[in-house]
Design a protein around this nucleic acid. Structure first.
Lengths: 191, 191
DNA sequence: CCCCAACCGGAACCAGCCTTCATGTTAACG
DNA sequence: CGTTAACATGAAGGCTGGTTCCGGTTGGGG
């Protein structure tokens, strides 16, 4: 009565799960969150039913990818914690790295741009990201290179704006989000 | 064969058109662009068919309101052109006035945040807004109080981000868009 | 090799929402 | 007041896109 996992998971099932995840990542990256489940299934060479076997809902799929994204962002921020040098440069470089990672992925931008779901807010990636960012900010402020009143929420807000700008202008002027970041970062710096 | 307007428009028709427009403005302001046509009709005490008699499509209704909004923004910017005083203060005040006008109107924020449709881009409001903004920017730059490389497109981008931030966070922290603007404006200023 | 639970496929289903249309009503001109 | 074209109504239509479900398939333990 304890071995619920006598037949844990079939090999092909696991394989399909990965295919779906990869296909979803590609579809969302290209078309944003409005990519259709059927398109994802097609890319994975799988029926829609299979997608739903592995993820109860389209949103669950999004959530899974969002978690991945936030983990990557957390990784970038935590990496920056290790770096030596001018705290401002360290902070700014982390932001630029994050932006560059997200900019080519429409869904990633949209996730950053939208307000986080309950699931996201509680995800470990978000927590780690917020923690690392807080330290980066404090260090920069201690060195007197970042405005004293800046908070993690401000960064979140700026990155939210970034996400929208990058997602919205993927058709128009492609590099406008870089200008956006230049200006916003300048606004965070001490003068 | 010239008088196509023998019976130009019935009085009640004109009245209904206004009711629809007002109802749409209210519905969009409250629920954003995803407000439903049926809701608009209900608010106007009118059938959906009547809405479609006056506006061929929901999008046309949005377009009409968008034009109104851009005219208001143009008015604000042109008003600023008349003002005396530090060009930075004049510019910044115009931005704040615009933001405050839009912030309580979800659809307005979404319109600012989305990329402009062809119709919008060609609207007289947009043109006037861009023209006035350009002058405000040039004056500030001439006075040495705004970064030299700033352009109208940068302002557009920043206001696009603003729209999204304000619309996205209407549920969460309500005043975060103000922080956003503070920082972005600081980034535009000369240090 | 057999068998069964796990798994797959994709047509059918369903809900939300914009739009149309056939029918009934009304302003306004003569 | 009669006539008519303009107008209003809201149920029905149709499209889009997520989700379900059942008949068929298959991995893998015995």
């Amino acid at each position: 009565m304890s071995t619920t996992a006598h037949r844990p998971q079939r090999a092909d099932a696991r394989r399909n799960r990965e295919k779906v995840l990869a296909a979803a990542a590609a579809a969302f990256a290209e078309s944003g969150l409005e990519a259709q489940v059927e398109d994802i299934a097609r890319r994975a060479s799988v029926g829609v039913g299979t997608v739903y076997r592995h993820f109860p809902t389209k949103e669950a799929l999004v959530e899974a990818l969002a978690a991945e994204h936030f983990n990557k962002l957390a990784g970038i921020a935590e990496g920056a914690l290790q770096e030596r040098g001018d705290p401002w440069e360290v902070f700014a470089a982390a932001i630029w790295r994050s932006a560059n990672a997200a900019a080519t992925d429409v869904a990633w931008c949209e996730i950053m741009g939208g307000q986080p779901t309950a699931a996201q807010a509680a995800s470990s990636g978000q927590m780690r990201l917020a923690a690392a960012m807080t330290t980066l900010i404090e260090r920069a402020q201690a060195a007197g290179v970042m405005r004293e009143d800046a908070t993690v929420d401000d960064i979140r807000t700026i990155m939210c704006g970034f996400g929208h700008v990058a997602a919205a202008q993927r058709a128009g002027s492609p590099m406008q989000w870089q200008r956006y970041l230049e200006i916003a970062l300048d606004g965070l710096r001490t003068r």
